[in-house]
Simulated assay, not measured.
Amino acid sequence: MKLAVVILALAMTGCATVADIEHTPATMSVMSGKNPQEYADCFLHKIADSRKPPQIEPRHEGLRIIVPQKFIQGDPAAILDIEPRSSGSSIKVYERISNVPMRPKDVQRAATACISGEA
């Protein structure tokens, strides 16, 4: 039953572009002791088991990671903007269906796991 609700929620939300997602409120805004490349490497390692490889783009002085959806090819599910700070980096996570409580939590789990300055 839960799976049916998730599939219905995904079907109702339709396609989203990077521009659509980046204009939603951030679901997470944190700072990390890691520089942008270290944080990105950690995030990519943590998300590798649950998603296809994300797209990485240079953005301003940092990086942008565009995470693909789990079930629909080609559409983004989340965006991470990682900017350098004096002692690490700031990270903002934007998710496509941020207002759906039963959305997959793998992006937030991976983003949270990589916050500390440790490897």
Rank of each mutant, 00 (worst) to 15 (best):
K2A: 10
L3R: 13
A4H: 09
A4D: 14
V5Y: 03
V6G: 10
I7N: 13
I7W: 08
I7F: 11
I7T: 11
L10W: 08
L10E: 13
A11V: 12
A11S: 14
M12K: 13
M12I: 04
T13F: 12
G14Q: 08
G14R: 06
C15M: 10
C15S: 14
C15W: 06
C15N: 12
T17Q: 06
T17W: 04
T17L: 06
A19W: 00
A19F: 02
D20N: 13
D20V: 06
E22R: 11
T24D: 13
T24E: 13
P25V: 05
P25S: 15
A26M: 05
M28K: 10
S29K: 14
V30W: 08
V30R: 15
S32F: 09
S32M: 06
S32E: 09
G33P: 10
K34V: 03
K34L: 12
P36Q: 03
Q37H: 08
Q37S: 09
E38L: 06
D41F: 05
D41C: 06
C42W: 04
H45Q: 14
K46R: 15
K46P: 04
K46Y: 10
I47P: 07
I47W: 04
I47Q: 06
I47V: 14
A48T: 00
S50G: 00
R51L: 08
P54T: 03
Q55T: 13
Q55P: 04
I56V: 15
I56T: 15
I56E: 05
P58R: 13
P58H: 12
R59C: 00
H60A: 12
G62M: 02
L63I: 04
L63P: 02
R64C: 02
R64T: 04
R64K: 11
V67S: 06
P68W: 02
Q69W: 07
Q69D: 15
K70P: 01
I72H: 15
I72F: 15
I72W: 15
D75E: 15
A77S: 13
A77M: 12
I79C: 01
D81A: 01
D81N: 09
E83S: 13
E83Y: 04
E83F: 01
R85F: 00
S87H: 04
G88W: 03
G88R: 07
I91P: 01
V93R: 03
E95T: 11
E95Q: 13
R96V: 02
I97G: 09
S98G: 14
S98N: 07
V100K: 05
V100H: 09
P101C: 04
M102H: 06
M102T: 10
R103H: 10
P104K: 00
P104Y: 00
K105L: 01
D106P: 02
V107W: 02
V107L: 04
V107Q: 04
A110E: 03
A111N: 04
I115A: 11
E118Y: 07
E118F: 08
